[in-house]
């Protein structure tokens, strides 16, 4: 079934485009979840390619926890405007009213309310029957078994046992009213593939991925950037200016930076080749408990 003559990047690109076109053709009301990170950047770029010369027949949606890096929000609005995509932004207002934050409520509850619940709320509100996400199978163990079309119940739940077998490129898009599918067009990409593609296609990314002097504090061996005045400092704790960058982007209090001098894409890839820590190690939410990602997914996390 393969075409050895296409390089692996072109094969991955063609596969992702195929998946996006299937979803556009088979679902009544799809949406692309835009997290502003590098994977989302690639997904957006592929969506623009997939439907060219048309614009993608679905909007972008960002779940704003209100704790994203400020640079991410600026980048988000610029990208949507530049590509001409429709952008929806959703925040769990109930969570905001209750003042849910990662410090007082812990990363687990905070993530549940401001990400998982917010996402479910937004999907229900707009009646989306398919939602693209940029997750990759190489990120984490339970992701390795994720389908490209991941079936969710009317309550947005994920049951690993009821997932459908996926044969060839014949994706089963049949759902009942209320049910939905999460679609992962980047399933077979690795972190290196993502960077390589960004470089080859000259895709814009949030500058936070590149090394620069930034104010950080060190907590439990992780470097947390002081992105605004809301980050509570311990008595005597003083932010230090360090040359850092991020391998993954999320909510700033939950995303650890790494010290780095890599301020070009080439340098990032060079650094990666020597890297000895995996990408998700910088995500504090995965460390909460064993099998934590699987548990979050059962509850409806992306």
């Amino acid at each position: 079934m393969s075409s050895e003559r296409m390089t692996h990047l072109r094969r991955l690109e063609a596969e992702s485009i195929f998946i996006m076109r299937e979803v556009a053709a088979e679902f009544a009301n799809p949406v692309m979840l835009y997290s502003i990170g590098k994977d989302s950047a690639v997904m957006l770029h592929l969506a623009a390619k997939a439907f060219y010369p048309s614009l993608p027949p679905f909007p972008l949606m960002h779940i704003d926890t209100t704790w994203k890096f400020r640079e991410m929000i600026a980048f988000r609005d610029a990208m949507a405007a530049r590509l001409g995509f429709k952008l929806l932004v959703h925040t769990n207002q109930d969570g905001v009213a209750k003042g849910i934050n990662p410090f007082d409520h812990g990363s687990s509850l905070y993530t549940h309310v401001m990400k998982t619940e917010a996402l479910k709320e937004a999907l229900t509100l707009h009646g989306f029957d398919a939602a693209f996400g940029g997750a990759r199978r190489d990120e984490e163990k339970s992701r390795a078994k994720e389908r490209v079309f991941s079936f969710r119940t009317a309550n947005h739940g994920w049951d690993p046992k009821s997932q459908r077998p996926e044969l060839w490129n014949l994706y089963n898009a049949r759902i009942r009213p209320g049910e939905s599918i999460r679609v992962f067009p980047l399933s077979n990409w690795t972190e290196l593939d993502i960077w390589q593609y960004i470089l080859a296609e000259n895709i814009p990314i949030v500058p936070l991925y590149l090394a620069a002097e930034r104010p950080v504090v060190e907590r439990d061996g992780q470097l947390i950037m002081v992105d605004d005045e809301r980050l509570p400092l311990a008595p005597g704790e003083v932010p230090l200016m360090k040359r850092v960058r991020f391998r993954t982007l999320g909510c700033y209090p939950l995303t650890a930076a790494i010290e780095s001098d890599a301020d070009t894409l080439e340098a990032i890839v060079g650094e990666m080749l020597l890297a000895r820590t995996s990408e998700r190690a910088g995500r504090l939410i995965d460390h909460d408990e064993a099998a934590s990602m699987e548990k979050k997914k059962r509850e409806g996390y992306f």
Binding site: I258, E259, S260, A262, E266, A267, G270, E271, L274
Partner: peptide
Amino acid sequence: MTEAIAPVSAA
């Protein structure tokens, strides 16, 4: 913590 790698070799 990380070794610098010449951009040219990454390229």
